[in-house]
Design a protein around this nucleic acid. Sequence first.
DNA 1: ATTATTGTATTAAAGAGCTAATACAGTAAT
DNA 2: ATTACTGTATTAGCTCTTTAATACAATAAT
Lengths: 123, 123
Amino acid sequence: MPWNLDSKRPIYEQLIERVMQDIVTGNYKPGEKLPSVRELATLAAVNPNTMQRALAELETSGLINTQRTSGRFVTDDAGLIQQARQNLALTQVRTYIYQMQQLQITPDEMQQLLAKTLEEGTL
Amino acid sequence: MPWNLDSKRPIYEQLIERVMQDIVTGNYKPGEKLPSVRELATLAAVNPNTMQRALAELETSGLINTQRTSGRFVTDDAGLIQQARQNLALTQVRTYIYQMQQLQITPDEMQQLLAKTLEEGTL
DNA sequence: ATTATTGTATTAAAGAGCTAATACAGTAAT
DNA sequence: ATTACTGTATTAGCTCTTTAATACAATAAT
């Protein structure tokens, strides 16, 4: 699982998104201990400070909790995790709708284009 | 029509997007003359250099043509414009699909969530 | 001819934000 | 007690974007 970091956007931001994704998709399970800052930094091929910043910010979401000397742990509140996943999905749909509206594309067209593109994708 | 510039992303990039939108949605018509760099810069509340950069880059798309001393004009190739609009839309759908896949959301759910959100939006 | 308007080029400076290097502090394990 | 591992703090440097201030060149308008 490569980290696929893009130089056009802040790395720490992408790290937040990636770790959050790993949590809401169950890649990291509720209650599980995360690898240390330095380990994760190595995995992502990133400076430890950058990973530190990402994890610190991610903590404000409540998805992870920090224990000063033993490490960071995924929350064991499964409901919170599913809620986060739902919010991420909602943001994506809203972004899609907004962008398409900017192009003056109708709701029907939004749905048709989605359906059509999904079909092609599964070939 | 405020320009709604966001400080988180390069301004010149947002200017490109905005002018492109105004073209593909017919806000600026095929063959029409655009306001001058300085005028547009004033409208967008932006430095003329920044607007200049945006327009210069936008020209590579073929959507606008420059006449050194009389100004910039929207292409009169209506097909090109519609094609650009289609490409922008396609990019949006693909982004939506990709992001949803990252959240391990199925194609069916992608469509259901879109439909549901569209309904709510029209209330 | 002169004036105004067009796009373009250049250089500098400032500012913001991100990343890197290093040192510190606390605790668990031995 | 010592070692190893955890997160944290601080500072400095780098890069990119944006703005600014001009100057230039070509043409349309008067």
